[in-house]
Design a protein around this nucleic acid. Structure first.
Lengths: 333, 333
DNA sequence: ATGTCCGATGGAACCGGTTCCACGCCCGGG
DNA sequence: CCCGGGCGTGGAACCGGTTCCATCGGACAT
């Protein structure tokens, strides 16, 4: 009945006596309203879908935590979808076009086909993106290009010129582009410093510490190895640290390593890194979707979050410049 | 209309011609069924709530990933709730008693008050637990006591007798008990080996690598320091490694360290640890809830997952046994 | 040829709130 | 004293599928 509904929702237009009576009866019957019924008549589900790739990655889960915190505090259910393949992604996006699937969608670190965005827009399902540059969608991200530059400039500033780069492979299954942009920043910085860019110092492969360690091992073992390595993520930087250790190189004495993201483990490992506000990105994204759901028809803003080099113990000034020739000699011994 | 519903759901009792016609019309109208309406009349939401504490912890998120994978493949939405305080937990559990909130609940690594379980049972909402020993609830967990013993025995087997213990504080905000049980296992193993248990070697504090590092630093700096440390989680073991490094101790030469869980980073750090099947635990929990939802009224099984010591490079045989007296002498020098 | 049975189909009640609308009551102004 | 207005309340339509039930038609057996 109408009055009960009024009691349940706002306190609009109900006499205090009636309210008390209704509440008392609800208490007696141990009555609990049905979210489905409420949602159906109201046309909203009270939930938001959160699409994240590889949920176990520290950077992703930190963003996710930020999203969850905000949505929870707003009383919105978070339907988390872990995406590991393009197929899964498309299937999930398709499912979201079903009516009353979710009131909104938060996309985290995931490139989305343009037509999928169109579909969602047609269904009037608001979308925001975190760490994904999706045109026409409110989004919060970082300037990967600048980040790549900053990391490289940090190493250049320490006197390094043979700087290796380790990042994700060009064609990840999901088409991430941040590695490419950080690499571009790396190239820009080298160019600006007048340092030649040796393609042999660039390695790209599957994400993860293990593959990164393998690639770093190759660089280290090469005839003219780098004195510093820029890893496109902290996870990969961890692999580089491991490779250095295994090769008997001391960090930062023999090799400087800089990562990207500033995940929790970075601090523990004393890893110099380019910090990006991971949790904040999730918080902002969630706040955006909440704003849209609350009826503020926000324009498709594109907010850039600040980056910052956090110097720790994994980078140091290049030791006494040696002639490149000495190194092969040592290796040959 | 009835026929449309039949086409949407099972292929029961619809002539092929009609089905085609219906499908064609649906196509034309770009019709998408409403999950809410379907759910309402059917009495199910098609979603399961997943309660996880501190979602950013590697062990937790790995379990969560297992849960998500199964639920997704079953076409069930996962409503993830990050729980950080007892208050949040209770609020969330209360919300779940609302009708049509979720078809089931998966509790991960979270102790739950008995009465909350009762409430959910009353509402006929099935519950399963992962890494939480909740009486009367189907659950999958490990034998923390045995795990503590195994870790300690590994160190004892390497000749260590002064073995430190570092774990979570007694009264975490959420009342975890695994540290206590692992500590009990540690004591059992020492007792069985006839090694005296020095309370001064036991430190408990807030979870996290940082506090663990601080505690380990204390142990290391003590007059009669341990030669090995058992950390109740890999995260804490990372802190121990850091403390050792900072104290100039080489692992495992000067100090052996064993962790617990075998999170991803453990392998990279070459950390010896007690492996528990994290992802599998999530998978099993999700499978359990699916079985119950599918109508198999499972008894409250209590499945124990296997544990295994994974020897890596952070533990080694105790160096030449020195008389305990020598150490204070050295320190005094 | 006719009765019977089964499978396909349309209709209607129902899931459980929300919201609009109309009605009745009370109060104040004319 | 009567009338208008506004607030509080009950009623009913509605959100959009699901499911049960009755009906209808065709095939098969007698």
């Amino acid at each position: 009945m109408g009055t009960v509904s009024r009691v349940l929702n706002g306190n609009t237009r109900v006499s205090d006596a009636t309210r008390q009576r209704v509440l008392q009866v609800m208490e007696m019957l141990d009555y609990r309203p049905s979210r489905l019924a409420s949602g159906l008549s109201r046309g909203r589900t009270g939930s938001v879908a959160v699409l994240v790739p590889f949920v176990t990655r520290p950077s992703v889960v930190t963003r996710l935590a930020g999203v969850l915190a905000v949505l929870t505090s707003e009383g919105i259910d978070s339907v988390v979808c872990d995406i590991e393949t393009a197929d899964q992604r498309d299937r999930r996006l398709e499912a979201l076009t079903q009516r009353h699937s979710a009131d909104g969608v938060v996309i985290v670190s995931l490139p989305i086909p343009r037509e999928s965005v169109q579909r969602l827009r047609q269904m009037h399902i608001p979308v925001v993106a975190v760490d994904a540059d999706i045109p026409g969608v409110p989004r919060v991200l970082i300037d990967d290009l600048a980040g790549g530059r900053m990391a490289t400039e940090h190493l250049l500033g320490l006197g390094h010129t043979r700087i290796g780069f380790i990042g994700d492979e060009r064609e990840g299954r999901l088409g991430f582009v941040s590695t490419a942009r950080r690499l571009a920043g790396y190239r820009q910085a080298l160019l600006a410093a007048g340092v030649a860019c040796d393609p042999g110092l660039i390695r790209r492969g599957p994400h993860g510490a293990e593959p990164a360690a393998a690639m770093a091992g190759e660089l280290i073992a090469s005839p003219w190895p780098p004195t510093a390595i820029f890893a496109a993520s902290d996870t990969q930087a961890m692999g580089v640290l491991r490779a250095a250790d295994q090769a008997g190189l001391s960090v930062p004495h023999d090799l400087s390593v800089i990562g990207f993201d500033d995940i929790e483990a970075a601090e523990m490992l004393r890893l110099t890194t380019v910090r990006q506000p991971l949790r904040t990105s999730g918080v902002k994204g969630a706040e955006m979707i909440c704003a849209v759901l609350a009826g503020h028809p926000r324009p498709a803003v594109r907010e850039l979050l600040p980056l910052e080099v956090v110097p720790r113990a994994s980078t140091a000034r290049l030791r006494r410049q040696r002639a490149p020739a000495t190194r092969p000699a040592l290796t040959g011994a």
